[in-house]
Design a protein around this nucleic acid. Sequence first.
DNA 1: AAGCGACACAACCGCCAGGCA
DNA 2: GTGCCTGGCGGTTGTGTCGCT
Length: 227
Amino acid sequence: MRKPCCDKQDTNKGAWSKQEDQKLIDYIQTHGEGGWRSLPQAAGLLRCGKSCRLRWINYLRPDLKRGNFAEDEEDLIIKLHALLGNRWSLIAGRLPGRTDNEVKNYWNSHLRRKLIKMGVDPNNHRMSRTLLSYQHHHGITSATSSGSKSQESQPSQIAKSPGENDQLSDAASCLDDDTCALPDLNLDLTMTVPSSPNSASEKQRSEESKVLRGTQNAASPTLLLFN
DNA sequence: AAGCGACACAACCGCCAGGCA
DNA sequence: GTGCCTGGCGGTTGTGTCGCT
């Protein structure tokens, strides 16, 4: 049995108070990041070390951008997700001032829906087969991003159908289906070495290149998006 | 005004990988 | 080589807010 990361009965949970935030900030400004396990006690916080780390990384760090995502950031997330999948930390590494949690939340709450609305399967970034069928039966010729609430809800209902878990196999079967190409997603995925050194560490870069190589070797459908 | 559902986001949980003794 | 510790990651849950009825 794994030892818990902290004694849960002696720790606070839930939202952080201003005092707790301040204690954490003060401590890290004095002692630097790291030593998360011992940090709570040293900083006088009744929190789990992991919780402290998360709070710092996702909320308190001074270099965080916060606020709405710009359109180019959205595009970049979509492109990177098409390439990397749910590697939120890698994606966030390409977006200065953004955290993996933030990107993940934004994806799940905004971009996923947006792609579905466009008729794109957010899991494989291809035209949804069920949507194609739906469009075929309803005489819809192309997916547009403008639509009434009812239009929006239908594809999303389709996406959340019991067949959702079959999307990987569906994607695979999509390989030999020309109609699965993205309609209007301009995915110019020219990967360049990150220009800002603060975003991606060496480890991250090697991880990315591993992912990229894997993607290419597998002749993944994703590649078909970038012509 | 109250109830309700959808949405957005913060936080938690469990697992995994790397470092180190 | 092995086991433990720690940091990090991705998935999931909890909760507050907003808009609609």
